[in-house]
């Protein structure tokens, strides 16, 4: 079945099996391996990408459901190689350890900032509630998002 959609600003026309998930097409047919498969069932958020600027678990979406839509992956955050403010903040604030959760975290944070450029701490927590990280303990990730949004306070971030 033919699938027409836009990925990171580029129009794509692909031959895609009905049973392929969006995650499979991004990783295997388009070579965009930023989105990761953690659980494959919507629990971990490692596969998070944006569809029409909304964060979704690409492991739960059939690729053909993205027909006509615009998909953004972590690769789309730095199209020319220059890092997005969020990516820079993640590096600076030590929000990355093994990095497996990072592409998903970044995309959930990106979706939030697109909708709400100056989120509260609570809004950041809610936006990232569907992304699990087994390394960082979340505090540095929160700090990084606040930093990118310019809402970082001097005070301590509440322990997760």
């Amino acid at each position: 079945m033919e699938l027409r959609f836009t990925v990171n600003g580029q129009k794509q026309v692909l031959e895609v099996e009905p049973q392929a998930r969006l995650l499979d097409v991004l990783r295997e047919q388009l070579g965009l391996t930023g989105a990761k498969e953690g659980c494959g069932e919507g629990e971990c958020g490692a596969c998070t990408v944006l569809v029409d600027n909304l964060a979704v678990n690409s492991c739960l979406v059939l690729a053909h459901q993205a027909r006509g839509r615009s998909v953004t992956t972590v690769e789309g955050l730095a199209p020319s190689g220059k890092l997005d403010a969020l990516q820079q903040a993640f590096i600076q604030k030590g929000a990355i350890q093994c990095g497996y959760c990072t592409p998903g975290m970044l995309m959930s944070a990106k979706a939030l900032l697109l909708r709400k450029p100056k989120p509260t701490e609570e809004e950041i927590r809610m936006a990232l509630a569907g992304n699990l990280c087994r390394c960082t303990g979340y505090v540095n990730i929160l700090r990084a998002v606040q930093d990118a949004a310019g809402t970082a306070e001097s005070g301590e971030v509440r322990k997760a």
Partner: peptide, 9 residues
């Protein structure tokens, strides 16, 4: 319901 990602779908 679920997370942001779940609610979006």
């Amino acid at each position: 319901v679920g997370s942001v990602q779940i609610r979006n779908r």
